[in-house]
């Protein structure tokens, strides 16, 4: 139980990372590979936020009832992950647009067959 309470978030984050990496390495359909990229991104963001957590801490926002910074969570990883999420979605949108054009040109989305048809 103690082991779980220490490492459960790291196990979840790296589990997602490895499943996403396995999808990107072994699947043949291009859209499946892009789904794997999305899952890999989510795993990395989970790991970054799990590092910045302090036990018993609260969200880094002041209000009328929270007026001192006694126990607040680290705000820097949250800013980095905010930037990362937006960049992840723009990469995904551009990759899907290129996949649509590839399908229009070759007629298939199988990566092995596209590699064989050169020029």
């Amino acid at each position: 139980m103690n082991f779980l309470s220490q490492y459960i978030y790291y196990i979840g984050a790296f589990g997602l990372f490895f499943i996403g990496l396995y999808i990107m390495l072994t699947k043949k359909n291009l859209i499946k590979v892009i789904i794997g990229l999305d899952i890999l991104d989510t795993g990395v963001f989970l790991f970054l936020i799990a590092i910045g957590y302090t036990s018993g801490g609260t969200a880094p926002i002041f209000s009328k009832s929270v007026t001192e910074t006694g126990k607040m969570v680290d705000p820097v990883p949250q800013a980095l992950v905010l930037t990362g999420i937006v960049i992840g979605v723009s990469v995904l949108a551009l990759a899907l647009a290129l996949a649509i054009r590839l399908y229009g040109h070759y007629g298939t989305l199988n990566l092995r067959k596209i590699k064989e048809q050169r020029w």
């Binding site: 989510t42 963001f45 926002i61 905010l82």
Partner: peptide, 19 residues
């Protein structure tokens, strides 16, 4: 939901709306 449990409400909102 896990981002909210780790005390990061900004990131939870961004991930839910965008992801």
């Amino acid at each position: 939901v896990i981002f909210y449990l780790l005390q990061a409400p900004d990131v939870a909102m961004a991930e839910a709306a965008i992801g």
